[in-house]
Simulated assay, not measured.
Amino acid sequence: MTAARAELHRSNPASGGVVLPMAAALPNNRSAFAARRFGASMFARAPKIERSVVSDIVTDQRRRDARDVRRLPLDVEAVAIRRALAGFARARVIRPTDNALLQLRRAVSGAFKVDEDAIFGPSRALGVTRIRQIAMMLGCVVTSATRGEVGRKMCRDRSTVWNAEKRLQHLIIGMASTVSPRGDR
């Protein structure tokens, strides 16, 4: 046997030294061997499907300075509000004895993907103030807290909470079906 032919064959000790063709033994050539033997249509490869990474509709704005946080479009804002309500509901089920307004703060910052310190800090940037107003509005609608209590937990005055409610009245009406009537009241 020549050296080239010896490379194409290998010895199988389990079968008593029978020489098998290398193409039948290699995993890379199995489909080619089977296609030749049984027909190509049986072993045709399925087309490769490219899976695109689904990007989240709410952009991640964590680790940004408060003045660099951008205001979200209205449809994205509605998605983030629903996520905040769902996160708040989960938090209330897991730990019902914790402070509801602090849980709401965490849920809103997580849903809008902005640091909690940036939202409730002293900044007056447009993107941050809008998220803060949404958090205050949800605090009044979803919990049984007064405007003064909501303002203290959100590091603001009760008149600021009242202003947020007035500005976001259309959201309260639009999201009324999302909020449970037997909420945390």
Rank of each mutant, 00 (worst) to 15 (best):
A66I: 02
R71E: 05
R5T: 15
R182F: 14
A145H: 05
A23S: 12
R182Q: 12
L8I: 00
T178L: 07
A145P: 06
G139F: 12
F38A: 10
R45D: 13
N28Y: 08
R90D: 15
R156A: 14
D75G: 00
K113E: 10
I81V: 14
F88H: 04
V93K: 13
R62M: 13
P73R: 04
V58C: 06
A84Y: 12
R156P: 01
G139T: 11
A35Y: 10
A23M: 15
N29C: 06
H170V: 03
E50P: 13
K153F: 02
M136G: 08
V18D: 08
R106H: 12
P13W: 07
T160N: 04
A145Y: 04
G17K: 14
N12Y: 11
G39S: 08
A14H: 10
R158G: 03
I131L: 00
V69E: 07
L20P: 01
A3G: 01
R64N: 10
M22K: 11
D60R: 05
A40M: 02
T129S: 12
V150F: 08
P13K: 11
E50G: 06
G110W: 00
V79W: 01
S109H: 03
T59W: 10
L101K: 09
G121D: 02
L171T: 01
V58D: 08
N12Q: 08
V142S: 09
L101D: 04
A40E: 13
A135Q: 00
E50N: 14
A125H: 15
K166L: 05
A80D: 00
F33Q: 11
T160I: 07
A25N: 10
Q103T: 03
D65S: 15
K166F: 04
S15H: 00
S144G: 12
E77R: 13
V69H: 02
R5F: 04
K48L: 13
I57R: 11
R185K: 15
S55I: 11
N99K: 04
R30G: 08
M175V: 03
R83E: 04
S159V: 06
V58A: 03
S159H: 04
V108G: 02
V128N: 01
V58Q: 09
G87Y: 09
I119W: 05
G183V: 09
D68W: 07
R67P: 03
G183Q: 06
A100M: 10
L101V: 13
V141C: 09
T178S: 10
A176S: 15
R95D: 08
A25K: 01
R92Q: 15
A91C: 05
C155N: 15
R158E: 01
A35C: 04
G174R: 11
I172Y: 02
R158S: 11
T97S: 13
W162T: 15
G148S: 11
L85V: 11
V79R: 04
A4W: 03
D98Q: 07
S123I: 01
V69Q: 04
E116R: 11
C140L: 14
R63M: 08
A80V: 09
A40V: 12
R124E: 10
T97H: 07
M136K: 03
V150W: 07
E149V: 10
E149P: 09
V53M: 03
L171M: 04
L104C: 03
M154C: 15
I131A: 12
C140D: 06
S159F: 01
L20M: 07
N28K: 07
M137Y: 05
F112T: 00
F43D: 02
K113F: 01
V69A: 05
A66D: 14
R36L: 09
